[in-house]
Amino acid sequence: MKKDLYGDQILEWAERSEHMGAIENPDYEATATNPLCGDKVTIQVLMDGDTIRQLCCKVRGCLLCKASCVHLAHMAGGLDRTDLKDLRDGFEQFLKADDDTMDLPSHEMFSPVRSHKSRYRCVLLPYNAALKALPEPEK
């Protein structure tokens, strides 16, 4: 039996409104869409040097996407692009891992998504938008 995808924590995060909306003068901004369903996430970022001071989002998407968006916005402060990329890749590995073979305490509430491959894109969309917004470091 699959775990219930819409646990209380997911529903609670999806309803939270902090970090949702716009930043007046963002340093960076990008939008990512999920071509399968048309969902859209716009991320705006205010920076302190190379690290994120504030991240805000506008979401046109499902509950999973909304929860992931707010969750990311909470975690983003103090991260640089490399940290963000590592966080995203770690999240993806966590999703793809067999149950209980990989821990990611910060993302535990998303563990029921593991058994719904078609929904990985929903929770990764905010990360993809954020990475699209932040410029890649010069080599």
Partner: peptide
């Protein structure tokens, strides 16, 4: 969201819809 409806329909009721 349509996908949230489709997910609940599938997981709890065995109903296959498209969203």
């Amino acid at each position: 969201h349509p996908h949230d409806i489709c997910q609940i329909m599938n997981d709890h009721h065995g109903v296959a819809l498209r969203g």
